[in-house]
Amino acid sequence: MFNVLAAIFSKEYVKTRTSMLILFALGISLAAVIYFDLNRLFMLDHPEIVWYHTLDLKQIPYGIFKYLPMLSATVFCFCQFLPEMRDERLRISLHLPCPLGLLLLAHIVYGLIFLMALMIAESGAILIILGRKYPLAYLPEAFWTMLPWCLAGIYAYLCCAWVLLEPKKKTKVLGLILGVCICTPLFQHYTPGAFSTAYLPFILGIPLLTVSLFLPALHFRTREVE
């Protein structure tokens, strides 16, 4: 099993390293934008007034980050699976002598690991930037505010993978519907920090959807109609 994972991970790395680098650079650039924006905020006004806007009026100085995880995840999913779909190159991997479930899991876990690492790096950078200017007690609120956006990114990746892998058009639509339905509540405006009591069901949904991806892979593997 370890051999399979290592082989697939190295293949995916070779395939996606350029896109990974670009997305990472994008994330760093965004963090830099937030850094400079925040500096400017504190330049234009007294710190206690900036604190008032953020801590009392609940304005979000890192709001620009909101859709980045979802966009990054979608782009990465396309970079990972579109080359496999072109001329149905995925058949090469599907013919390898290892269980289909393990093969698929290796592909998906690779993507999830990268995206989680990317989101941790991006949100970690944002928290460090915020921690320079705001009290440390504010950081948990920022973390709980960013978490649903990151979860939306994970779900966007899984649903895009579903849409790309699934050969049947109407089943692709199911992936799209589920993606929209799960991401919409994650992008709604809530009181900052409100998500701290609701994250668990959204986290538990990730392994469910990951396991579900076996179905489009199986449909791809053995089609009944072209």
């Binding site: 949904g205 469910l208 579900s212 076996f214």
Partner: peptide
């Protein structure tokens, strides 16, 4: 594996749709 994947998808879909459809 197919049955497990199907069950997981149905559970996920039912929960997500029960959140989204009434809201819509």
């Amino acid at each position: 594996m197919r049955k497990v994947a199907y069950a997981a998808l149905m559970l996920f879909s039912i929960l997500v749709l029960s959140l989204a459809l009434p809201a819509a």
